[in-house]
Design a protein around this nucleic acid. Structure first.
Lengths: 339, 339
DNA sequence: AGATTTTTAGAAAACGCTTACATAATAGAA
DNA sequence: TTCTATTATGTAAGCGTTTTCTAAAAATCT
């Protein structure tokens, strides 16, 4: 029942506990025979050091934490897999803590069990918590929050650039009347993508019409309804392309357009963001902007380890999305006819 | 830089450290005013107990571990999400440790940081490790290994039953000549499914032909070739249904049959196992046997917590798969014509 | 008011480990 | 052989908690 401790090994080997400790930790101070003997006994007794005792003294645990409240969504495993592999390469273990209880998360972070943490959680950890972490000099990298100080940084996707690039891509296909289907206005991503979209329109001197910003709430049904009612209200000014705030929205949009008898992409191009799993298998397969999740994970781990080793100060790294061209977008028809 | 400890709180509040400890842990022995004062000071100093110190004394951490070497595969997040939610419901945190280094895993398990562990890893942890864990009375539940003793159990899918049920389903559609596409013969799942399939054939007095067991190696291409060459070699005894060892195999099978001009499911039914993501979107959508991953996770957590609380001894729980009927299977044509 | 009980707070040990320091043993030099 | 320099091992303190036990203070009873 009782776990075997360093004392047991010492007694059994007939040496002191410090000798056992030295033998196990390769402190080069023991005569080889002693060391070998101790190791043999430790092995025989199946001794495994108690991590709590060890970490109570030690200054590092060689363990990084990844905190999140939920692991749903198909991205998760790509992110975790990339982080885990990279941690391993750098000599760290990865500890994923899934909890909705903030106290669990904070006590893990500040409880000194981990050398640093990657936080993928926007709503739970508030500004006060962040400032507590800051005071305690916690090493942290945020994946969803823009933040920077000596000990904390972030790695985020630049949604502004994503929106800009997406709109620019649609423009390059010859589209001139491009509508944007907004998500939720309190969400950073949604707003940034819209701003990027507007900037691209502006840069190309395309007219902008207020009614071209629909509200889809990042949901399939919300978008479906928004598009349907737009067509009812303004049949005369149907866009020749829709840029949806995310893929789910793009799917709702396509379903609405199809139900009104339009062909995608022949009549209208539709584009989303995220490259969710379904995007590839939807009919038509979605053109979208993909977040390079794996890369984000790797950069986060990298940055965190450098923060821990004091080789870097906290900084904000922005990643560009990657445009994935599939079948839901097309050269504008008039152009093709014109050729 | 230095983290604030219980001593700092004690000094600042002008009380002893035991008083602070009592105040924080709700030991009902302090006069309310003292307690309130201590709590106020602790709050003001942003005191968070050091977990290592705490766990060094404590007998439980209220943390469960989930160990795996890799998180790839679309199942993963379903499993983890289910486990995380259930842990929370039972008052435990979930700690996922991703590591390929066995020592990291073992020292976490035996290092007393966790009350118990769920292990999803077949190759890394060998029998010796298991016996070490057993001697140390580690509470563990395995998801992929059949194992049972006082402190350890397993939750697995019964591949035998799955094979049996699948074959029975095909028989119920009127099929009589049912071929099985085997995976790798060293893999438990593949063999069990085949045995179940054979049992169902036997039970219904269906003739069995040795050549009806093809080798597809659980791969699309391997299966494609196997099916193609079967048709070449035995054109006269074409089965009226194929039961493939997994979905990937089923896809290879369908592609081979189509390339030979057969219609699925009109001419031949095809069925797989696993219900991979693609199964729903393939053409035709695959009939398959789905593992109820979320349920497996929940049962594992449940069992583990009962092991920890000594309310149960280790046991083996087998889960039945669920047959998902899609378009790749059909009533046998002759039957329909016959009516 | 004094004796006794009850309440409240503090001192100290213990958890398992590492590590600075002290001591004992050995080897080398005079 | 004696003294010093070197090496190998052990002693003990300390990491941050909890917890048992003891002491002091307050409350209650005679």
């Amino acid at each position: 029942m009782r776990k075997v401790t360093i004392k047991d090994v010492a007694r059994e080997a007939g040496v002191s506990i410090s000798t056992v400790s030295n033998a196990l930790n390769n402190v080069d101070v023991l005569v080889p025979a002693t060391k070998a003997h101790v190791l043999e006994v430790a092995e025989r007794l199946n001794y495994i050091p108690n991590l709590n005792g060890k970490l109570l003294k030690a200054s590092e645990s060689k363990m990084l934490g990844f905190f999140t409240t939920s692991v749903s969504g198909p991205y998760f495993y790509v992110l975790v897999e990339a982080m885990a592999r990279h941690c391993e390469k750098l000599g760290y273990g990865l500890n994923i803590v899934v909890a909705k209880d903030k106290r669990v998360i904070l006590s893990n972070i500040l409880g000194q069990r981990l050398d640093g943490v990657i936080i993928f959680e926007e709503l739970l950890i508030d500004d006060k918590d962040v400032s507590v972490m800051e005071k305690a000099q916690v090493k942290a990298v945020f994946l969803d929050r823009v933040l920077q100080n000596n000990t904390m940084g972030s790695v985020i996707f630049d949604s502004y650039v994503a929106g800009y690039d997406a709109a620019k891509y649609l423009i390059s296909l010859g589209h001139k009347k491009i509508a944007y289907i907004s998500g939720v206005d309190t969400m950073y991503d949604s707003v940034q993508r819209r701003e990027g979209y507007l900037a691209a329109l502006n840069e190309h001197n395309l007219p902008f019409d207020e009614s071209y910003i629909l509200q889809g709430f990042f949901e399939e049904e919300g978008t479906y309804n928004a598009v349907k009612s737009f067509i009812k209200l303004h049949p005369e000014k149907l866009p020749d392309a829709f840029l949806a705030g995310n893929d789910v929205s793009a799917i709702g949009c396509i379903k609405a357009l199809k139900s009104e008898g339009y062909q995608i992409p022949e009549d209208i191009s539709v584009m989303g963001f995220d490259d969710i799993n379904l995007a590839e298998y939807f009919s038509p397969p979605l053109t979208t902007v993909k977040n390079q999740i794996a890369r984000q994970g790797i950069l986060a781990v990298d940055h965190l380890v450098k923060l821990i080793q004091q080789k870097e100060k906290g900084m904000i790294q922005k990643l560009k999305g990657e445009i994935i061209v599939r079948r839901s977008s097309n050269l504008k028809v008039e152009q093709m006819v014109g050729r």
